[in-house]
Write a protein that binds this DNA or RNA. Structure first.
Lengths: 230, 230
DNA sequence: GTATCCAAGTTGGGATACCAGACTGGGATG
DNA sequence: CATCCCAGTCTGGTATCCCAACTTGGATAC
């Protein structure tokens, strides 16, 4: 009987995780070329696990093929719009199901997560909570496909959200929108929670697109590939 | 050994496609173990492209890890329910957007596809059209994420749909439900199209679950792993 | 000065050798 | 007869080597 837990991650998973972090943290810029040989030396492994990691990251949309070459996925303004359109029905469904299925302890855990965001905590924490909130709500739906899909959406939105120029006001707005959604779920008000979710998604989309378009020139100057957008 | 033109299709893609077909056609049974060495000899390639293909198939949900081993994904009754719950909002959104965005020529192409299904054409064709209909409707939405998600759903439902015991009546019912949805889209009646879509998805779910539960014993006898279901 | 072309270097794709861990079966032991 | 143990075997994971296709840069011809 195999009762053994894999205590040591395979190199493929290590490289996958590290490269993922480098891309999401913009340590590797959007559109930047990745050669298997460079990655091999960078992570001190052979090309075999490097290639396996690249294939997985391709499925996540963080890495793409450019002809025969690998590149970190560019920031795509059209994609941000499509993602907003895509996640609306997903997250509406998630909050409605959460109203029906979530227990109080689940909601308490998410509330605590939100409460961890107060003036003074580093921006990384705000960013992470902003992602996790949506994923955890989806998890309350009990539907693994909703969770996977929302995770995918938030992964793809991670870099745009990081590049957004944050004002104190917009940060507080997003936080209170999250808070309102959570309260509506707790009050078992699916219609209200849905409406707030749609509003939040559209606000987020508009903020991201406006900010990225405004900074487009500067971001390109940093070597970041920003494509799409009309 | 291989001096073929690589521009056409890498071996990884060939193996991916062939293995995918073998799994979807139940040539490889649900739950069946796959060893890299067997695949290597079966497809006359080395383990390198075999492993890349397996990683991709894992992302599609057709292949899983079982401990350190690879297996063809079992049929999971719980998954069929979760998929129905997941695809409802997706396909509602797709038909609504299709009402707004689809042109007549697009709709004609789908109608022709449906018309190709008449008594006498082989079951494979009915099966394929039943999948493609939903994907093509999603394509009319113009949203690539909706397309990808619906493709994923239909891929995961492919084997259950194939295993379902088909009566003449249920086949005709599914066909006419498709037809009605298409007509409502053509008439730009999003509310009606949505209602019909939900109805169709729930009918499909119930038919699949009933049929699989009834045949569970027989399918297991054929060596097929059928898991889940309460 | 410009266009052309070829050789050297680089890239990803594939093949293969080797490794460590897990499984299996049979034999020794109580 | 049951139990335990160990070696042989098989597995996926990794490193490394070779190859064909592409890129590139500079010499050459005009």
């Amino acid at each position: 009987m195999q009762s053994r837990i894999l205590h040591d991650m395979s190199q493929m998973l290590q490289i996958h995780s590290q490269l993922r972090d480098m891309i999401l943290s913009l340590d590797i810029g959007p559109g930047e070329r990745l050669t298997e040989r460079w990655l091999e030396s960078r992570f001190d492994g052979s090309r075999t696990p490097v290639r396996a990691a690249l294939v997985r990251l391709e499925a996540e949309g963080l890495v793409q093929r450019d002809g025969r070459n690998w590149i970190a996925a560019p920031i795509d303004l059209g994609e941000i719009e499509a993602l907003a359109e895509f996640r609306e029905p997903l997250e509406i469904t998630a909050v409605r199901l959460a109203c029906a299925r979530a227990g109080d302890t689940d909601l308490d855990a998410i509330e605590e997560m939100l409460n961890a965001c107060r003036p003074g905590v580093p921006r990384e924490e705000w960013h992470k909570v902003g992602t996790d909130f949506h994923v955890e709500i989806a998890r309350l739906s009990g539907n693994p496909f909703l969770v996977k899909a929302v995770e995918g959406v938030m992964t793809r939105l991670s870099r745009p959200r990081w590049l957004e120029v944050w004002t104190e006001a917009s940060r507080e707005q997003a936080w209170s929108e999250h808070r309102r959604i959570l309260d509506s779920i707790r009050a078992k008000q699916p219609a209200e929670a849905s409406r707030e979710t749609v509003e939040h998604i559209r606000d987020t989309r508009d903020r991201l697109l406006r900010s990225l378009k405004d900074d487009r020139r500067g971001l390109r100057a940093r070597g970041f590939a920003i494509v799409g957008g009309r």
